[in-house]
Computed example of a mutant assay.
Amino acid sequence: RIIRKVATFDFKGKEQPMELTFSREAHRELCEWKESVNNAIYSATESDAEKAVCGKLETYLMRFCLIIRIMKNICTEESATLIDTGSAEAAIKLVEYFREMENRVIRVSLSGNLDKRQSELLDALPYDFRTSDAIDIGRSLGMSESTVKRFLKNSALFRKEEHGHYTKMSCDP
């Protein structure tokens, strides 16, 4: 309904440029997301693909804020020039949805490049496991301790929760 309303909106007579700014609260919300979520993920990962996603999402976030505010204006027939906290929060949710979809694509593509023993180890590991568990399972598959530890560094497949404790990333498309 909203998209239909935006798509059929009559812009005639409304062609004057309008500058949109962020409310103080919205700006704070976006800065907090950037520091506590996006920069944290960028710093924690060794994956060039995941780092590239972080950069793209910062650009998308600003665009989504703009799109959401314009859609609100059209739907409420307002001409607000302030991007509010609600718009910023909605844009952050949208960005995080796209991050998860991008990460799923990365994980699925990387999991297709695993050799037979790596695939077997990935399948045999529970969602939540310790390094020692992975080493034991890896040994049963003929893998050395160093090979298993190197495999666990793949941030597209595993998240290091704390020293010696990992979770598997979802590979469901």
Results as ranks from 00 to 15, higher is better:
residue 95 V to C: 15
residue 158 F to A: 04
residue 92 I to H: 06
residue 23 S to T: 12
residue 16 Q to S: 14
residue 139 R to Y: 09
residue 171 C to K: 10
residue 52 A to T: 10
residue 23 S to G: 09
residue 37 V to K: 04
residue 61 L to E: 08
residue 68 I to H: 03
residue 107 R to T: 00
residue 26 A to E: 10
residue 114 L to G: 01
residue 59 T to Q: 10
residue 29 E to V: 14
residue 115 D to W: 02
residue 49 A to K: 12
residue 3 I to K: 05
residue 136 D to Y: 11
residue 24 R to V: 15
residue 78 E to T: 13
residue 161 E to G: 02
residue 7 A to M: 09
residue 124 A to V: 02
residue 164 G to W: 08
residue 133 D to P: 00
residue 12 K to D: 10
residue 45 T to V: 11
residue 100 E to D: 11
residue 63 R to H: 09
residue 121 L to M: 03
residue 5 K to H: 06
residue 159 R to A: 15
residue 53 V to Y: 11
residue 137 I to M: 13
residue 30 L to I: 15
residue 94 L to D: 14
residue 22 F to R: 04
residue 47 S to C: 13
residue 98 F to P: 00
residue 28 R to K: 15
residue 37 V to S: 02
residue 164 G to H: 08
residue 30 L to G: 07
residue 6 V to M: 08
residue 13 G to V: 09
residue 17 P to L: 08
residue 39 N to F: 05
residue 18 M to P: 00
residue 4 R to I: 08
residue 65 C to L: 09
residue 1 R to S: 12
residue 132 S to G: 08
residue 11 F to Y: 10
residue 75 C to E: 13
residue 91 A to R: 10
residue 98 F to G: 03
residue 104 R to F: 03
residue 91 A to G: 07
residue 141 L to W: 02
residue 40 A to F: 02
residue 2 I to E: 14
residue 142 G to F: 06
residue 53 V to D: 15
residue 133 D to F: 06
residue 154 N to W: 05
residue 52 A to G: 13
residue 151 F to M: 01
residue 143 M to R: 03
residue 12 K to H: 11
residue 1 R to D: 11
residue 92 I to G: 04
residue 29 E to D: 12
residue 32 E to P: 01
residue 72 K to T: 03
residue 2 I to A: 11
residue 9 F to C: 02
residue 114 L to M: 13
residue 105 V to C: 00
residue 107 R to I: 02
residue 119 S to W: 01
residue 134 A to P: 06
residue 173 P to S: 12
residue 91 A to F: 06
residue 87 S to H: 09
residue 161 E to C: 05
residue 82 L to S: 14
residue 99 R to Q: 12
residue 126 P to N: 07
residue 112 G to M: 07
residue 56 K to M: 14
